[in-house]
Every structure is written in structure tokens, then in C-alpha cells.
Amino acid sequence: MSRGASSSRRTVAQIAPAAAVLTVFFLLPGAYFFLVSFWQIKRYKLVRETTLENYVDVVREYLPSIGFSITLALIIAAITTSFAFAIAYLIRFREGRLGTLILFVALTTLFGGYLVKIYAWKTLLGSTGIINQALMLIGVIEQPLDWLLYTPLAVVITLVHFLLPFAILPVHASLRGIADAPVDAARDLGASRFRIFAEVVLPQCETGVVTAFALTFFISVGDYVTAQLVGGPNTLMVGNFMQSQFINRLNAPIGSALAFSTLLATLIVFLALRYGFRLALGGLRR
């Protein structure tokens, strides 16, 4: 092949700019950020002596808040993924334009107004907000519900709303990849709707479901803005501690150790869940 050498040189040149951006503004800062987690702040100065003390601090002080964040994120990811799956399932298997409309709304609001969405829920869920107003108007309640806002529930509702379009996309993409014929064949062989769902549809869109769950789970674990605006003083995510280590206490090492500990814990929980999911799907088919 005469074009082999020149074409591979061109390929390298084409990828180089993006790779440079990735290296300089992601890989190197990430690596440095990791190193920082082993250093310390002494008299407002970064001291480059390797120590595990930050991680010891994290385990001693922040383990409960990491656990709380992961638990809340699991709940959010589970709700969002199931919700998204139900929507994507209807889009794929029901005729007509309603599905297309939902998909269009999900797509176009995907990157629209992260802060605006949180703010909107803050006004919606407040004691004088529209939800309380509506409930009182139709006479379901007499006093406004005070547990709607500034509770973990508010964080769950807000993040489910924000993350739903992110989850619909990968699930829909994988459901769209399922041909009609295997589904028809399963009906033809006598399978009930539930069996078709569990044994034919779900295993074929495993990638999409896992991607949706991972995306929503990871983003929820790291989100702190939502908790800060609608969670109230008692709903603090680990991200709130991380950013306050930076902003208020100017202690990057602790913040970094906290970040990497959370990342590791999240990864372990996620991998364990995925393993369990595979096992469950495999068990169904036996």
C-alpha cells in the first residue's frame, strides 16, 4: 500500500489538536489534581510531601456524607432510568406522533437551562409555590406542605427532571436498534408481554440502560448546586463539602482526596450493580 505511511501520518495530524486539548485540559490537570490529594496545606501554602493523611481525614469525617450522596444518587438514577425506559419503550412500541413529540421535547431541553430548571423547581415546590397553591385550591390539603422544598425529596425531583432527557437518549437509541421480527417471533412462540419485555427487549438494550444509569448516577453523585439551592441545610451532598473545601477553606488537598474517594466508591458501587444486573438477566434465560 503506497498510501499507508502518508495516510497514517495524516490520521495522527488530524487527531492531534483534539488530543492536545484533552491532554492539557483534562489528563494533566486530572493527574495533578490526583497528586494534590497526597499533599497538604500548611500555613496557607501547598506543601509537597506525600502523605495519606487527607484520605484518613476523608474516612474519618466524610464517610457518612459519601454514603448519603451515593444512596441519594442511586435513588435518583434508579427513578430516572426506569422513567426514561418507560418513555423510550412507548416511543419505540406505540404508533403515532406522540412519541416523536416527547423525544423532540427531551432532545431540545437536554442542554437547556440547568440553573433555570433548578430555580423553577424552587419556585414550584415552595410553600407559596404553585404545587401547594394547586393542592390547596382543589382542597386536598389545608396547610401548605412544608416537606416539598428544602428536603432530599426536592433534590430527587429536581435532578430526575434535569437528568431525564440524558437517560431517554441512550435507552431510546438502543431500543431503536431492536428489530420487530424477534419481538414478533417471541409473541408467535407464545410469550406474554412481560416475558417479551424481560427476556427479549431488556437484554437487547442492556447497553443503553446501563449507560443511562451510569450517566445519571455519576452526575447525581457529583452534583452540589441542586442540593445547595433546593436541598436545604440538612441535605448536603459530598459535592457541597468538596466545593466548600476549595471556596471557603482554600484546602485543595482535602477536596481532592474527597473527590477521588467519592469517585472510587461510586465506581465500586456501579460495577457491583452492573454485575448483579447481568447475573439477573442471565438467570432469567436459563
Binding site: A18, A19, L22, F25, F26, L28, P29, G30, Y32, F33, V36, L46, A214, L215, F218, I219, V221, G222, D223, Y224, G239, M242, Q243, F246, A252, G255, S256, A259, L263
Partner: peptide
């Protein structure tokens, strides 16, 4: 996978890593 890695992480991680590096 490499190129898309920054999208997969929570934005706060990237933000803190960049802020630390810029400060350094």
C-alpha cells in the same frame, strides 16, 4: 472513549481539577 471521557464525569471534578491546575 478517551476523547469523550470528560463528558462522563460529573462537571465538578473537571472544574476542581482545572481550578487547581490553573492555580498551580
Amino acid at each position: 472513549q478517551f476523547i469523550t471521557a470528560p463528558v462522563m464525569l460529573p462537571p465538578l471534578f473537571l472544574a476542581l481539577a482545572l481550578a487547581t491546575a490553573y492555580a498551580a
